[in-house]
């Protein structure tokens, strides 16, 4: 919209001066961030990449030495000499893939319940949002240590004993899912509110019209509700992956942190670890995006392009 208003022929006379001024002010406003992101993100990424591909010597500052046993020595070392990292990483990945649908389905159900005509909605919303405020790494680990991370009434044992025949690397994340079910659900506060905000935008008349046409509640859910929250499912899934991957109760982050300050492992080793971790998270993000992206997206982009071409041709 904004582009169109600016693109009137009147502007053409002042094109250079006005546009230059605009560029200048645009950069002025984002200047602090550009400086920051260059130092603390771009430079830092390059640095950590360099660390992971060399041997770091700590003597009066950081000195980088070339590796002796091949370019990927650090990465190989992470997988061959470390006992904890590969299993923790696998558990994290599988756990994430298991937790994601649970969180998304759960927060959608809660949002649907809250969206129906009920009393005390704000009270319930307050309860479901509370964990967003208090769920931090140290608090979570205290609660896990107390064994209150799961509902005691649920008889998990029956189900788990059936599953215990599975191989360890699959069984462990499932076991983890059940044993910290509450803490996993605690991660759904923001997602519930995002779904709820989306659901409240669906006009009630749409449901009424569907009902008159003879649609059951079940059909309206699939035909009206789900399509409207579809883009939100993608948004929420990405948000969930990002928060779980950077969240405080994450064992891999602890591993990387300790490796950094352990004499036998050191900086380059820790950075190799963190790059492997980043890659895993990135792959999961891409998979989530590809799976949940709306199929019609490409079509919309195509339409948009066609319209643009038409517009340009018209001028």
């Amino acid at each position: 919209m904004s582009k169109k208003t600016k693109r009137n022929p009147h502007d053409k006379r002042h094109f250079t001066r006005r546009t230059l001024r605009e560029w200048g002010f645009g950069y002025l406003f984002i200047l602090p961030w550009i400086v920051g992101v260059s130092i603390f993100f771009l430079y830092a990424m390059v640095q950590s990449l360099r660390f992971s591909f060399s041997r770091v010597e700590l003597s009066n500052g950081v000195i980088l030495r070339p590796l002796e046993n091949g370019l990927f020595e650090n990465f190989v070392k992470v997988f061959t000499t470390d006992v904890n990292f590969p299993t923790t990483l696998a558990n994290f990945g599988i756990g994430l893939i298991l937790q994601l649908p649970v969180i998304i389905a759960f927060s959608l159900i809660i949002a649907l319940l809250l969206n129906s005509n009920i009393r005390c909605r704000s009270l319930f919303r307050m309860i479901f949002f509370l964990p967003v405020i208090i769920a931090t790494g140290p608090v979570m680990s205290q609660l896990t240590a107390q064994g209150v991370s799961s509902v005691p009434m649920v008889s998990q044992n029956a189900l788990l004993s059936v599953l215990s025949d599975l191989p360890e690397f699959i069984y462990a994340p499932i076991n983890n899912l059940f044993s910290s079910l509450i803490l996993i659900l605690w991660n759904s506060g923001i997602q519930i509110l995002i779904f709820l905000a989306g659901l409240q935008k669906v006009p009630r008349t749409l449901y009424e019209a569907a009902k008159i046409d003879g649609a059951s509640a079940w059909e309206s859910f699939w035909k009206i509700t789900l399509p409207t929250v579809r883009s939100l499912i993608l948004l929420n899934s990405i948000y969930t992956v990002v928060t779980l991957a950077t969240g405080g109760s994450n064992e891999i982050i602890e591993l990387i942190y300790t490796a950094t300050y352990t004499a036998t492992q050191g900086y380059s080793y820790a950075m190799a670890m963190s790059w492997i971790y980043t890659l895993v998270v990135a792959v999961i993000l891409v998979i989530v995006f590809l799976l949940l992206r709306e199929k019609s997206d490409r079509h919309v982009v195509y339409e948009q392009k066609r319209r643009d071409v038409k517009e340009n041709a018209g001028r």
Binding site: W33, F40, S48, F51, I256, A270, S274, T278, A282
Partner: peptide, 21 residues
Amino acid sequence: AILILAFLLPSQTTALPNYLV
């Protein structure tokens, strides 16, 4: 694009270089 990348990627890769800065 850089802004969104900085949001998506875990900050563990940049934490140590930032510490050194």
